[in-house]
Nucleic acid binder design. Structure first.
Length: 471
DNA sequence: TTTTGAGTTGTTCGA
DNA sequence: GTCGAACAACTCAAA
């Protein structure tokens, strides 16, 4: 038994809002008698958040406080600049160490380095399954292509011990003041707390994951895990989640069922890949990964952008996706690709506008994954889609929402439009427009661009950008 | 150093 | 309606 210090360690909670499999907490507990759980409402981060995501965060902090109280502890919430907040508690109490889960995003790196220069901060792993500093090519450089990265990742990954939540968590006797929780409202779609998150995970692993490869693209089904908000804030432990999926796969005799699990694990590796890309190539935050794509002549059309944001493009699937985002703070992955392709390739609007809108509206907004996804869609990123690969919003609609269920669900104006016209309402004869109470240009928007023409324009624009660079 | 094989998610056209 | 080829060329990763 290691001798523990009779002093206080701060467990600085950031993107690890959980007691289960929490490495920072576990390390703190193994070295110290008394733990002070601290969450800091960082104005710098909150400014870039949005009410819905902030609500989700607050609700989860409340759930966490409740969980802590069951263990004889509680959550200390502070507000302000993190290193200043930490200095304050550090010097007012007998604190000798601070533990936190490392975060490899550019903002977090600066924040933590600043803090570590002033205070004894120990960072643990946990934000990803493997560290972004763990996977390199044979020549020692980071990967920039997904497939070889994934191959290497799978070679290196191994099963590790999962840390159970502590039975009791000794809290300091000191007189500690916490901010009161700001008002917040809860999300129906994403109930707060570890228990709700674990229930969703179990449901997915028990019922959906083996079909994941076939159903994840269908807009009508709950074929996706819908875990992203929980994973972003670390309400679930990513390595626990991975290991459960991995063990499930080993247990399956029927190799038919492996395809779904494989496919989902691959998505987790994409998450790791984009975290690594952002950590190793931070210029992607403000520039294309490939700098030669800086020259694309974007249209900067504010009206088109507004129509896209509000789901008034006249393309039902695009509008359905954008309204799902507005109303719930979440969007189906297939819809994300369709609306992203539409913004970049049909409207020829800078992917960075879309990236920002997603950051401002998604509950799961994650700077690394969001940036990676947008650069992929725009064809400016690592492993970029060939520039001629332009999604057709109508064929995507027919293919992945054949019965129009998703569109009917999110676009009210189209409620009475016959299925025959649901993907292309502009083709409705006038009498049907009248009987379905959906006149194009009145109740429902006219198409703001013609896809065929827009496609040609984009092919030219990308070609031009390329030739400028080759001169 | 050179060579070789490969690269998330698509669309269109024509047989 | 279905199917296969063309769409372009380039860069990456590893041998």
């Amino acid at each position: 038994m290691v001798n523990k210090h009779q002093d206080i360690a701060i467990w600085w909670i950031r993107r690890d809002l959980r007691l289960h499999d929490n490495q920072a907490l576990t390390v703190a507990l193994s070295n110290h008698e008394t733990i002070m759980p601290v969450f800091i409402l960082d104005d710098q981060l909150l400014r870039n958040s949005n009410p819905r995501r902030t609500d989700f965060l607050i609700e989860n902090l409340k759930a966490m406080d409740k969980g802590l109280r069951d263990k004889g502890s509680r959550l200390i919430v502070m507000r302000g600049e993190p290193s200043i907040c930490l200095q304050k508690v550090f010097h007012e109490h007998n604190v000798t160490a601070i533990y936190a889960e490392a975060d490899h995003t550019p903002y977090a790196m600066v924040r933590d380095e600043k803090t570590a220069n002033q205070l004894p901060l120990t960072l643990t792993a946990g934000v990803s399954i493997l560290s972004p500093n763990q996977i390199y090519k044979k020549d020692g450089n980071p990967y920039t292509v997904f497939t070889p990265f994934a191959r290497r990742w799978k070679e290196q990954v191994e099963l590790v011990e999962i840390f159970h939540e502590p039975l009791r968590l000794p809290f300091p006797t000191a007189n500690l003041v916490s901010e009161t929780f700001p008002d917040s409202s809860s999300s129906k779609l994403f109930p707060a707390g570890e228990i709700a998150a674990q229930e969703r995970l179990s449901h997915f692993l028990n019922n959906c994951i083996v079909h994941y490869h076939k159903e994840r693209d269908l807009l009508t089904q709950d074929g996706t895990s819908m875990l992203s908000p929980y994973l972003h804030f670390g309400i679930l432990s990513i390595r626990d989640v991975f290991q459960q999926a991995f063990l499930l796969q080993q247990a399956k005799q029927d190799t038919d069922q492996h395809a779904g699990i494989d496919s989902w694990i691959n998505e987790l590796i994409w998450r790791e890949f984009f975290m690594m890309i952002l950590a190793k190539f931070p210029h992607v935050l403000h520039h294309p990964f490939r700098l030669d794509y800086e020259q694309i002549p974007w249209t900067d059309n504010e009206e088109h952008f507004k129509a896209w944001q509000e789901g008034r493009t006249g393309y039902p699937l695009v509008d359905a996706g954008m309204r799902q985002l507005q109303e719930t703070g979440w969007m189906h992955n297939r819809a994300r690709m369709v609306v992203a392709s539409f913004l970049c390739k049909d409207l020829l609007i800078n992917w960075q506008w879309g990236e920002k809108w997603f950051m401002q509206n998604l509950l799961d907004a994650d700077v690394a994954a969001n940036n990676g996804g947008w650069q992929w869609s725009a064809g400016t990123g690592t492993d970029a889609a060939p520039y001629f690969r332009i999604f057709n919003p109508v064929s995507q609609s027919k293919k992945f929402d054949a019965q129009g269920t998703y569109i009917y669900r999110w676009v009210d104006e189209l409620a009475n439009v016959p299925l025959k016209y649901i993907h292309t309402p502009w083709k409705m004869p006038l009498d049907i427009q009248n009987t379905s109470n959906c006149r194009i240009g009145l109740e429902y928007s006219k198409r703001i661009v013609d896809h065929t023409q827009a496609r040609e324009r984009t092919l030219q624009a990308y070609k031009q950008a390329k030739s400028i660079n080759n001169d």
